[in-house]
């Protein structure tokens, strides 16, 4: 109070200038923040528009139905049939989810319901580290370990033949990659359940296993289902592991032990020298658009399911 009256004449001269500067900074900072905010919104449109615009050449040259159902992929003679890659992608996704989902749910139940204290910390940090490992590393270890295992042991044991590279190899590795991701989502939805549920069930004399089976799994069901859908999206869009381990064959695989191609691995494997062939870039970017749409459908489904769960338990 004293200081303002003491230096009254001085402050009056300063004030407009200081206020101006403050307001200028205020305006500049708001430009930056609004700009960044708008960019985040635009990013969504940017991705869709870019992919659509770059896909137009291929879609206008070839009929969509023909491309999706033709099994002939040969950019050099302008044949763009996606069917082998689509079949390969479905094979890989279904196989790795069939292996990964039970493991992920059981491990999540152990972490959320059984593990306690230090054990829980150790186990969850192992899972976190596994989730943080880049996929190129899984690819290399797959080459060194899983490829000989499939080629020399698994395929002969099942009475078939495999060069080691192929759909089964990719699926085994992808199952390990997608598991930690699904575990953490499932643990989250189990731990979000109110403790009253557990206490009520144990109180009427149910054993722990009965509580998990009949109460907790049912209550967390939508959350677990959304974790599985997100897992599907993950495997579907995985690129590097299929590119390294699937063998790069653009023919429809006859058995899971065959080499093949997935949609994302098609992009990586045919990128490069083939890009000079007209329409190839457009054909590969169209694959990207397909991936985007399908993964969004998975994510959207997961979001709807999760929202139902949230409304039910109010967390």
């Amino acid at each position: 109070m004293d200081t303002t009256t003491d230096s009254g004449s001085n402050a009056q001269a300063d004030r407009p200038e200081r206020l101006d500067r403050r307001l200028l900074i205020e305006r500049l900072s708001s430009y930056w923040l609004i700009g960044a905010g708008l960019f985040a919104v635009a990013l969504f449109a940017l991705i869709v528009l870019t992919l659509v615009q770059q896909s137009i050449p291929i879609v206008s040259e070839h009929s969509l139905l023909e491309m999706l159902t033709s099994s002939n992929w040969d950019p050099a003679s302008e044949e763009f049939g996606y069917l082998p890659a689509i079949v390969g992608t479905i094979y890989v996704t279904v196989l790795s989810m069939a292996m990964g989902t039970p493991i992920a749910i059981l491990a999540a139940i152990y972490i959320a319901e059984y593990a306690e204290g230090r054990m829980k910390v150790i186990v969850s940090s192992f899972i976190d580290v596994l989730a943080a490992i880049p996929s190129v590393i899984f690819g290399l270890v797959g080459l060194i370990v899983v490829v000989p295992f499939v080629g020399d042991y698994l395929a002969p044991a099942l009475g078939t033949h495999s060069i080691g590279l192929g759909i089964v190899t990719v699926s085994l590795v992808m199952a390990i990659i997608v598991t930690p991701f699904m575990i953490s989502l499932t643990v989250e939805s189990l731990e979000a359940l109110p403790d009253e549920l557990r206490e009520a069930s144990l109180g009427v004399g149910a054993t722990k296993w009965e509580t998990i089976r009949s109460v907790l799994l049912r209550a967390a069901g939508p959350g677990i289902f959304s974790a599985i859908l997100l897992g599907f999206g993950r495997v579907f869009g995985a690129t590097i592991v299929p590119a390294m381990l699937i063998g790069g064959q653009t023919a429809i695989p006859e058995s899971p032990f065959d080499a093949g191609e997935t949609l994302p691995s098609l992009i990586v494997n045919d990128f490069g020298e083939l890009m000079s062939i007209p329409l190839t870039q457009s054909a590969l970017i169209f694959v990207g658009l397909l991936l985007l749409v399908i993964v969004w459908l998975f994510n959207f489904g997961a979001m709807l399911v999760r929202r139902r769960l949230q409304r039910r338990w109010q967390y």
Binding site: A40, L43, I47, L51, G237, T239, P264, I267, G288, V295
Partner: peptide, 15 residues
């Protein structure tokens, strides 16, 4: 934005 988080990285590469 949360939908964008699930987009495969290869799509960002194409972008």
């Amino acid at each position: 934005i949360s939908n964008l988080a699930g987009v495969p990285s290869i799509v960002y590469g194409l972008l």
